[in-house]
Amino acid sequence: MNIFRFLGDMTHLISILILLLKIYATKSCSGISLKTQELYALVFLARYLDLFTDFISVYNSVMKVVFIASSLAIVWCMRRHRVVRRSYDKELDTFRHYFLVAACLALALLVQEKFTFLEVLWAFSIYLEAVAILPQLVLLQRSGNVDNLTGQYVFFLGAYRAFYILNWIYRYFTETHFSRWISCVSGLVQTALYADFFYYYFISWKNNSKLQLPA
């Protein structure tokens, strides 16, 4: 494992911790898209079924369990927690996420490395992860004002993607048979979706002002 992959995993983990912290400390999930969180839970469940079939390392297995557990916990809190669920911006979170799921499943059936159950699910999870942030970005755009922790959450998610791209570039030059084009193309799409958000994030950071997205 190279440093970029490790930093990518760590920023991913930090983003989830920030989200849990926000929900735990403020007992509020305002500004957070339940649809995006449900998509992430689905992404992790579909991709990490290989916990039962392939063993890569203790690190990988532990991280997989952490990602599945934390994403389910967040969805549970937003849907079921007595206090937290009241702050959910339901009327702003109207993205039709089922269409994303259907489109990604169709694409996974057409384009995958091998037509087996686990490989189709794996490709599905990669495609879905690439677009899972869309409901969240739409919600932020609609609400305009972004609170600090929500801004940090999306920033660290974006950083995770950026580090994974550096990781693939590194692996491309250091490994002889590195050709995971499904991951790379999807990863590039996913990172591109953050470009706009990053732009406004850096503007607000430079001006030392509150993060605001244009309507």
């Binding site: 091998k114 990781n167 995971r180």
Partner: peptide, 10 residues
């Protein structure tokens, strides 16, 4: 190479 890659990333 038609073999599926080992998915060693998260």
């Amino acid at each position: 190479n038609t073999e599926a890659e080992v998915h060693d990333e998260l």
